[in-house]
Design a protein around this nucleic acid. Sequence first.
RNA 1: GUGGGCGUAGUGUAGUGGUUAACACGUCAGGUUGUGGCCCUGAAGAUCGAGGGUUCGAUCCCCUCCGCUCACCCCA
Length: 427
Amino acid sequence: MPSFRAPRGTYDILPEEQPYWMFALKTAAETAALFGYGRIDTPMFEPTDLFERGVGDATDIVQKEMYTFEDHGGDSMTLRPEGTAGVCRAYIEHGLHNQPQPVRMYYASNFFRYERPQAGRFRQFAQFGVEAIGDGSPNVDVEVIELGWSFIRALGITGTQLRINSIGDAECRPAYLDALRAYYRGHIDEVCDDDRQRLERAPLRLLDCKKRQCQAIGNAAPKSTDYLCEDCEQHWASVTALLGGLKETYPDLDYYVDHRLVRGLDYYTRTVFEIEPENAAGQSTLLGGGRYDGLIEEIGGQSTPGIGYASGLDRIIAEIKAQETYEVSDAGPDAVIVHLGEAAGLRASALAAGLRAEGLSVLTAPAGRSMRAQMRYSNSLNARYALIIGDREIESGEGALRPLQSNDDQVGVSLSVEALSRAVRGD
RNA sequence: GUGGGCGUAGUGUAGUGGUUAACACGUCAGGUUGUGGCCCUGAAGAUCGAGGGUUCGAUCCCCUCCGCUCACCCCA
């Protein structure tokens, strides 16, 4: 066994895997652009307080999952566990409230959480997320959901389901939490130990407990949507109405109101949603998000509404592979130059440089190997042509250009960049 | 943090309480004179995850640790 391995929960993305990532990233950027979202990059680490206040002290993320360290100046820093807090910090710091609202931004990068890895979960993971900050209207909620849905579709992934809920805001949530606690106290003997612990601290969490005995209790629990205040109620009604309008474009967009959908971050208000494969189990959420109207104020800005989502690229790529929505090209270089002897080696190197400068993908076969070995090498790279140069070709000035993808005969081509470029291009 | 499964060449696997641990793919080299794909031959490549124990002797049995993996918690 090698003495060093990638740290637990991390992995290498080897060259052969990269096409999937490039496809996902390209699709993300294109979809974002379609909706007018501009890319933002924020630091990989931020002051620890930003996450403690933004994400919430009581969340699992803050309590046990952060990569926190003290830097040499004695400040506590944390590798970002999610993207929204950093983007909101940037929004405040750069006075983006002076731009036309809402400000639409997206990011695609790595995040870090110290958790036990399992299928679809890593310590370093990648997310493509979007944030629309500065407009509290339900139209933006639906815009963000549509963006998420169309991203998934643009990747070719089908068979997904949108689940959505409203968890109210600072005004109406306290009453709902009271009702929830009261309800669960009445069933305290029927729920699991974990849930008893959570009752006072994080009552919302009880709802999504997956243990069987808790499921039935959760199903009959008070619904947050029954406790919404006037404003939240109106907002929620508009969101569902607007969602219905998306069906013209996406006939399979059947949103499902899940009263037990809550989310693990404290900053969410009103709309929360998730997209996951229909027949999914375990860590399969492809995309999740919601509104966070109190977050900016919480971290020191003016009261500003916002909404966004994050999609897990590691999971999305796994789904792309599972559904085989993307075929990786096996195309090799345009040509490999097979060269025998020192003079030919010099010529090969110079010609390869010239052809690359012309935009052709050309490499030289490993020096010092037999011709047969170099031909095998060219073939194994799936090159279109082998260009053979030995003493005879140096002397005659004509190299042998041999097609490797067909049984056509090789042809003599003058050893000049112009002639070779033309021949390889097929003109 | 808790529980289950698994740890043999780069990868995927086989195997046995006892001399040189096997096969496939991959890599490299050959199959006469400068030409790939198929085929054939050969070579390199594994302290059988680590440490301890049982035994005359362990890769194989036992214990501990480490790692991978799946699940729980939670989330992307």
